[in-house]
Amino acid sequence: MAQANVTSPFPGYFILVGFPGLEDLYLYLACFFTVLYVVSTTGNLTLLSIIKIDRSLHEPMYIFLFMLSTTDLLLSTFLTPKILEILWVRRHETSYEACLTQLFLIHSFATTESFILVAMAFDRYVAICHPLRYFSIITKGVIIKIAVCGVIRTEAIMVPIMYLLKKLPFCSNNIIHHSYCEHMAVVKLACADTSINNIYGIIVMLVTSLLDLFFITSSYVLILRAVLRLGSRDARLKTLSTCTSHICVMLAFYVPAILSSIVYRVLTNVPLHIHILLANVYLILPPLINPIVYGVKTKQVRRRLLFIFKL
């Protein structure tokens, strides 16, 4: 009698491959990611402290910046330690529960960051296009409503993702070809039909990323139109300079994200470690760049930093 084809049971944990093909460089990568994490954490904590202590910074623009920096800090905190564990001590295992928790938190904070960037673009639009009505439009009540909408949107996106993921059965293949628990990398391991998960993942990407980019782009088109109407060249340059920090932050967030998505879905012949590195840059770069950009470009933050270091 032919033996029945039995699928091996899921062992209860996943193995993250890390950066395959770069094992000889793990020490250098470990040092590099450690420096990035320390600089990122220090920068965001410093920015949060400055905004909290300096009452002159308790304005809508800096409240949104406080939200962004908090999100960045949490994102890097839930992402980087596991990567460092892989690189420093070669510990690749992660439990099923820990993996799903990391997946939920990382994607939640990445989604929240995108929403905050939209809110910051709207803030700059009101400040430049309707300066006399700015404080009557962007009130504390409006900021609270925006924050609540951001949380609701993130939960509305993530709850179905986690529900669909929890329903999937996992068998003997528990090797995640990534350095962290990325959604689609985990879905690929399921020994069942994952078409619903794939379709929902694409819908989420289109609705969130493209819609957020549309709102941000629309805001800056209106801002540019208002700036070009200013009579003085100095006034135009001064007005545009207030937006350069936000533009740099948006580029640091969306460009690596788009490149990673293109490599993952279109350029399938790209080496795996390149895709993994791009996926890490997409999440690690914004928390690193944001406090540096705002520390350098924002006069009030820069002045406070110089005052601290003089002490």
Rank of each mutant, 00 (worst) to 15 (best):
L84V: 00
A192C: 15
N197S: 10
V148E: 12
Y62M: 11
E85T: 00
A4S: 04
P256Q: 15
S76G: 01
Y62G: 06
F307M: 13
D72L: 02
L237C: 01
H58R: 15
N269A: 10
T217C: 12
F135N: 15
F214G: 09
A252L: 07
M184K: 10
V89D: 00
L211Y: 14
L36I: 08
V266H: 04
I53R: 15
T239V: 05
V142P: 12
T46R: 06
T71S: 12
L68F: 04
F115N: 11
I223D: 01
F115A: 13
M1S: 03
L57A: 09
G21K: 15
S49E: 09
A119M: 12
R302D: 00
T42L: 10
M162A: 12
G150S: 12
F14T: 05
Q102L: 04
F170D: 06
Q300Y: 05
I216G: 03
N280S: 13
V281A: 15
E85I: 00
V187W: 14
H107R: 05
I50Q: 03
F215L: 15
I284P: 05
I199H: 13
D193M: 14
L222Q: 09
F109N: 01
R91H: 05
A30I: 04
R225W: 05
S49V: 10
D24K: 14
R302H: 09
F33V: 05
I292T: 02
I161R: 11
V17S: 11
H92A: 01
V186K: 10
Y28R: 15
I15N: 11
K166Q: 06
G21Y: 13
I247F: 13
P291S: 04
I63Y: 11
G18K: 05
R265M: 09
I258R: 09
L285N: 06
I284M: 09
T217Y: 11
K299V: 00
L288A: 02
H246M: 11
C129A: 12
M184R: 12
C31T: 01
K82V: 00
K188N: 12
T112K: 11
Q3S: 02
V38N: 01
H177V: 07
I63C: 13
E85H: 01
G18F: 03
